[in-house]
Design a protein around this nucleic acid. Sequence first.
DNA 1: CGACGCTATATGCGTACGCATAGAATGACA
DNA 2: TGTCATTCTATGCGTACGCATATAGCGTCG
Lengths: 126, 126
Amino acid sequence: MEAETELVDRWRSLLSSYNAVAAQLERALQEAHGLTLSDFETLDRLTTRDCDKRRMQDLAAAMYLSQSALSRTVARLEKSGLVERTHCVDDRRGVFVELTATGFERHAEARKTQLAVLSRHLTPTG
Amino acid sequence: MEAETELVDRWRSLLSSYNAVAAQLERALQEAHGLTLSDFETLDRLTTRDCDKRRMQDLAAAMYLSQSALSRTVARLEKSGLVERTHCVDDRRGVFVELTATGFERHAEARKTQLAVLSRHLTPTG
DNA sequence: CGACGCTATATGCGTACGCATAGAATGACA
DNA sequence: TGTCATTCTATGCGTACGCATATAGCGTCG
């Protein structure tokens, strides 16, 4: 019984910490840069890794999004001119996603917003 | 710079922990009980507190949901017969939300599912 | 080569969300 | 009593999501 309530308490804590930060972050990114949280996270994955040209499946594996959600996120980013999609040459089922110069800049600006929000709303305790 | 990456790392960790657990929980609750995560959390609030009859605004304050999302969640729960809404007598703008017997039972069953999922997917590290 | 199973991505569909606003009831003040 | 600012909940609207399925390319075996 003790273990159960401890488990639920940890979950509650995670739930409220996450939602508090996520809501602020979502709003700030949207307002200042026209980006969804998923948009930003996707851009982030593309800058963080060595090659800034990644296959969809690699992105999907590194993220929390479902395959379909990632597909649409990348479609949004492409429409906004932040990434480009190119078919792989060796396996034409695959799709490479690549940051554009604009995408790189937008990410850099958005990262400032992210840091500002995190430092204000992400408490050390969780 | 050090502090910045530490902050971002904490956020990443929170993000992935949350999503891993939330996705499982959402699916399990939906499949086994026809409940959204928000549905369950709302029922949970109604059983946890002293009086199991609460005003919308009290629920809203105790939760992460927006006011409109809570309104619709309660509407769903009422439609399913798990809660009842009654106008307050003293302030008829307000709405009391009350668990039905069915709602109480459903919550008790769903809580087992919650505990099962949490014990499997909520790691001690967060 | 041709058929088949498998993998990678896209899309139809239904749902929950947040924002902005509408609608109803309150309290204060003339 | 009548007006008006305020509070509480509901709703119109547009968006992102997940699930299931469609589509296109791959590799193998005959």
